[in-house]
Design a protein around this nucleic acid. Sequence first.
DNA 1: TCGTATTACCTAAGACTCTAATGTATTGAA
DNA 2: TTCAATACATTAGAGTCTTAGGTAATACGA
Lengths: 112, 112
Amino acid sequence: MHSPELLKGTLQTIILKLLADHGKMYGYEITQKVKELSDGSLALTEGALYPTLHKLEAEGLLSTEKVSLGKRVRKYYTLTEIGRSSIQKRIEDFESFISTMFNVLQLRPIGS
Amino acid sequence: MHSPELLKGTLQTIILKLLADHGKMYGYEITQKVKELSDGSLALTEGALYPTLHKLEAEGLLSTEKVSLGKRVRKYYTLTEIGRSSIQKRIEDFESFISTMFNVLQLRPIGS
DNA sequence: TCGTATTACCTAAGACTCTAATGTATTGAA
DNA sequence: TTCAATACATTAGAGTCTTAGGTAATACGA
């Protein structure tokens, strides 16, 4: 498991990219997808996830839709236009940050 | 300039690696070195730097030495044994985290 | 059928790390 | 002589996380 400190500031990017790649998702599904894609090494806690989803919704990047399954209600999140248009920049910012960190730490790029 | 959010959790690693690569350094020198290595895109604020240096010292990873230059006093930081032995793991943790993030975000590795 | 695990939503207190602002003082250059 | 740069530092407050807790439906094995 990674030091959770390193996760800070990347959660919004993860959520937005997952929604871009997989269409509408609900909260629990996002936690499972992250676990799967990271081979179990990243575990989103719900205390981090739900406030972030709500914040992104409040900022207009996500919209929600409630779907009933019997008595249970699932809340699906979808990217809005604004949300979708914000992703490319976030990804670029992340990659640029990584690149800078590699320079500062004087490490070799991954894959070379 | 990078979103400062992404910097969170990486400052200790930066400081330790800089000291490993460049020997003893003082606080202001560290801020300048980071600015130089990042081509001006990372600016450590002093409010972040000094508390972190003091914390690393309190944890036994750094030791200090005061050097007078005329009336001015410079405070040099050096890695202790413990500090030096902690670096490899921090670097590996960082690289592992990046690798995981690339998987989760489904990005191509840098340099490929 | 009964208990437990899983699914599924959520909040709240507190820790931690940062930013922005501020303070002090020395040194060097215009 | 005055302003920028050097050099140390602290503080209030913002933001993001962890840990812990709460509620409830559903699925599954004993």
